[in-house]
C-alpha cells in the first residue's frame, strides 16, 4: 500500500453527479423500499442465527442474537459500554491527531523542499516497510500498559498513510502555477500557504479520511494485545472466557463507533472541499 489514495478527480465527480436514474418511482419511495428490504434481510439473518445456534452450530462458538442483545443491554445499563467506548474513542482521536499532524508536517517538508525529500524520503519508506505490529513489544517497553502505548501505536499507523498522501499531494502541485504566483509577487511563505497547502489539501483530506478507521484499528489491536480497558480489551476478554456473546457485543459496539466516525469525517471533508464540486453541481 505504498501508493497514495487518489482523491476523486473533477471528471469522476461530475460524471457521478450527472448520471441520474430514470424516473419510474420517486427517489424518496425508493429509499424507503431499500430500507425495508435491508431490515428484512438483517432480520432474516438474525432469525436464522437464533434458530441455528445450538441446533446446527455449537452455541459456544456463535452465541445467539438474544443472548448478545441481553449482553449489550446489560453493558449499556451498568456503564461498561460507555466507559470502555470512551477510552477507545479517546485513544483513537489522540492517535489520529498525533499521527496526522506528524504525517502532514513531514509530508509537506519532504514534498516542498526537493533536497529534504531526497534525504528523508528513503528513510521514511524503509520504516514504512517494517510491519507495524513488530513495534508493539518495543512500544510496550517504552510506554507501559497505559493510554500512551495505544495512542502511539495507532499514531504510527496513521502517520504513514497521511505522510504519503501529503507528500504526493505537494509534489503534484504544478510548477507552472508556482512560477506564475512567484512572478505575481509571492514570497516563499506565501507560495507555501496560498498555493501548495490548498493544492495538496484534496490529497491530504483523502489521506485523513482513510486513516481514521485505521486509527481505530490500531487502538483496538493495542487494547487486545495489552490493556485492561477499552473495546479491544472487552473483545479479547470475552474470547478468552469463551463467551461468544460478550465478544459479539463488543464487536457491535465497535461497529457503531466506526459508523459514527465515518459519517463525521465524510461530513467534514465534504465541507472543506466544496470549491472542487462547485462547477459540477450546477450541471
Amino acid at each position: 500500500m505504498t501508493a497514495p489514495v487518489r482523491p476523486a478527480s473533477q471528471a469522476q465527480l461530475s460524471a457521478r453527479r450527472r448520471r441520474k436514474a430514470p424516473v419510474r418511482i420517486s427517489p424518496a419511495r425508493r429509499a424507503v423500499e431499500n430500507l425495508v428490504i435491508q431490515i428484512i434481510l438483517i432480520g432474516a439473518f438474525l432469525v436464522l442465527w437464533e434458530y441455528a445456534s445450538d441446533r446446527w452450530v455449537p452455541k459456544l462458538m456463535v452465541s445467539k442474537p438474544s443472548d448478545i442483545g441481553a449482553q449489550i443491554w446489560k453493558w449499556t445499563l451498568d456503564g461498561t459500554f460507555v466507559r470502555n467506548l470512551w477510552v477507545t474513542v479517546q485513544a483513537t482521536a489522540l492517535g489520529f491527531l498525533l499521527g496526522a499532524a506528524a504525517g502532514m508536517v513531514l509530508g509537506f517538508l519532504t514534498g516542498a523542499w526537493r533536497r529534504v525529500g531526497e534525504i528523508l524520503q528513503p528513510i521514511v519508506t524503509a520504516f514504512y516497510t517494517l510491519p507495524r505490529l513488530a513495534l508493539a513489544p518495543l512500544f510496550l517497553l517504552w510506554f507501559g500498559l497505559g493510554m500512551e502505548f495505544r495512542v502511539m501505536f495507532s499514531a504510527t499507523i496513521v502517520f504513514f498513510l497521511v505522510y504519503y498522501n501529503t507528500y504526493f499531494g505537494v509534489r503534484e502541485v504544478s510548477q507552472e502555477l508556482i512560477a506564475a504566483v512567484r512572478i505575481m509577487g509571492a514570497n516563499p511563505l506565501q507560495v507555501a500557504l496560498r498555493v501548495i497547502v490548498p493544492s495538496a489539501l484534496v490529497w491530504v483530506a483523502a489521506g485523513l479520511k482513510i486513516s481514521v478507521p485505521y486509527a481505530l484499528v490500531g487502538v483496538v489491536v493495542a487494547e487486545m494485545l495489552a490493556s485492561d480497558e477499552g473495546m479491544g480489551f472487552l473483545l479479547s476478554r470475552g474470547a478468552s472466557q469463551f463467551s461468544a456473546a460478550q465478544t459479539f457485543a463488543a464487536i457491535f459496539g465497535l461497529l457503531v463507533v466506526a459508523l459514527v466516525v465515518d459519517w463525521l469525517i465524510t461530513a467534514l471533508t465534504n465541507r472543506a472541499l466544496r470549491w472542487k464540486t462547485a462547477g459540477s453541481m450546477q450541471n
Partner: peptide, 28 residues
Amino acid sequence: RDVGYMTQGDTLLPWATVAKNITLPLEL
C-alpha cells in the same frame, strides 16, 4: 516582478473566485 506571465496551462487557483484570482497579484 515587472512582467505579467501567462502560459498555456490553467494557473488559476481553483478554490478562489474569479475576482479573488484576478486581484491576487495586488493582494500579494
